[in-house]
């Protein structure tokens, strides 16, 4: 037996779990509830400036990419648990969707 290269898949999965559990709920609360209800006031220019800053871009990309990877890996594992196998089609569907989301987010961040 040889040591596995699975950490390559697992480290972003673990990071994504952390982001999805700790940061995404806060972002949903802010952008989806508090701002629309008028409880919290955010200036568009402030948020835009954040997304224009290279470090800000990286943070936004992390907030999208890591949970997307987490979801892809989790869904693939769940498919495996349910006995649906772990063939190339399931891998392509899960990781492919994640990569589409990641590339779309990266493209949008480069464009702004």
């Amino acid at each position: 037996m040889a040591r596995s290269n699975k950490p390559m898949l697992w480290l972003p999965f673990a990071g994504g779990g952390l982001v999805a559990a700790l940061i995404i709920p806060v972002l949903i609360l802010i952008t989806g509830v508090l701002v629309p209800l008028g409880v919290l006031h955010l200036r568009y220019e402030t948020i835009a400036a954040f997304a224009h800053n290279p470090l800000g871009k990286l943070i936004v990309l992390g907030a999208v990419a890591l949970p997307a990877w987490h979801a892809a890996h989790r869904l693939r594992m769940t498919a495996h648990d349910l006995g649906l196998g772990s063939g190339i089609a399931i891998k392509a569907a899960c990781y492919g969707t994640a990569w589409l989301l990641i590339l779309a987010a990266a493209g949008a961040l480069i464009a702004v």
């Binding site: 037996m1 040889a2 040591r3 596995s4 699975k6 697992w10 594992m77 769940t78 495996h80 648990d81």
Partner: peptide, 15 residues
């Protein structure tokens, strides 16, 4: 680690 960190070790676990 040769066994524990192999594909048949911890990485087969889906928690």
């Amino acid at each position: 680690a040769e066994v524990v960190a192999s594909n048949e070790g911890i990485w087969e676990c889906t928690f």
